[in-house]
Simulated scan of single mutants.
Amino acid sequence: MPESFGPGPWAVIASAAAMTAIVGVRYLTTSGLFAWITGRVRPGLYKGLGQQIGREIGWSLISAAIYGIPAGIVAWGWQDHGWTRIYTDADDYPLWWMPLSLLTYLILHDTWFYWTHRWMHLPGPFRIAHAVHHASRPPTAWAAMSFHPLEAVTGAVVIPALVFFVPIHVGVLGLVLLMMTVMGITNHMGWDIFPRRLVHSRAGHWLITASHHNRHHEFYRCNYGLYFRFWDHLCGTDKGLSAP
């Protein structure tokens, strides 16, 4: 989180600008790293996708501002006014709450993502907004934040909203954001960075991986989850893994 910028509207603007810069740099650094790894491990996988990748980066940098502005407002409200349930002293809650809060945030985020993602596949929202993301065929490591602004708003509000209601240690919140970033990128890489024995294991049956999300980009009306396959299994929208 950025340092406090003091009172007044300029403090809010400065915090939002700082978080926008952080999200943008995080995107360029992490997506760039995983794109580089892809080039080393799967040379030629992104061959001929230069124009698509350029569009992905452009949309993603717009999304960085949409994600950064509410995050900056929340950071300002937390530091200057104590509005949120973010805490820094590990003794404020039992230690067992840290892993439980992590799981709670992931499950709630995954639930929000699944249902808003299904909504985005209705004809109107898809045509207006979600088609931008599905222009990534096949998806690349740069596509994780490649959203139309309307879709970016639906993704940007959930974690900032949760911190007003569900207590979370600032370190655990950082872990949530890290997992959100890594899963978002690795799900779009076009190949499974996780070991095959995990992807095809009993645990893998419940986890989203690149081969699971690839199938969504191939067939559209299936495999809607972000972290877990729970809702896909429950709602009959899980169509398995993409071919290697």
Rank of each mutant, 00 (worst) to 15 (best):
D110Q: 03
R137H: 14
Y27C: 00
F230V: 09
A141T: 10
L162S: 05
M179G: 07
H117I: 09
F164V: 09
I73V: 15
G82A: 12
F34D: 01
I73W: 08
W115E: 12
H216A: 10
A71G: 08
W76S: 07
I168W: 03
L234S: 04
P123C: 15
I57R: 01
I66S: 00
V199A: 07
C235S: 15
I62V: 15
A18P: 01
T30V: 15
L49P: 00
G8F: 08
P7F: 05
A90K: 13
P70C: 11
G39P: 02
I208V: 14
W10E: 15
P139W: 00
L178Y: 14
L49Y: 04
Y87D: 05
G240V: 05
S4Q: 09
A161H: 08
M98T: 15
D232L: 04
D238L: 01
A14F: 09
L108F: 14
A17Y: 04
T154C: 11
L234V: 15
A156W: 00
P167G: 07
Y105L: 01
S60C: 04
H216V: 04
T29W: 12
L28G: 03
D92R: 11
G82T: 09
D92H: 11
I57M: 08
I107P: 00
T38R: 06
P244L: 13
V182E: 13
A17P: 01
Q51Y: 13
L108D: 03
W78V: 10
A71M: 04
I107W: 04
V199Q: 07
A203W: 10
V41E: 14
L108G: 07
H169V: 07
P123Q: 11
P99N: 14
W115V: 02
G155L: 06
V172T: 12
T237F: 07
F34W: 10
R26L: 11
Q51W: 12
A143W: 03
P43T: 14
W97A: 10
G39L: 10
T140Y: 03
L207H: 03
M189L: 15
D238G: 03
T104Q: 06
A131R: 13
R196Y: 12
W206V: 02
L178I: 08
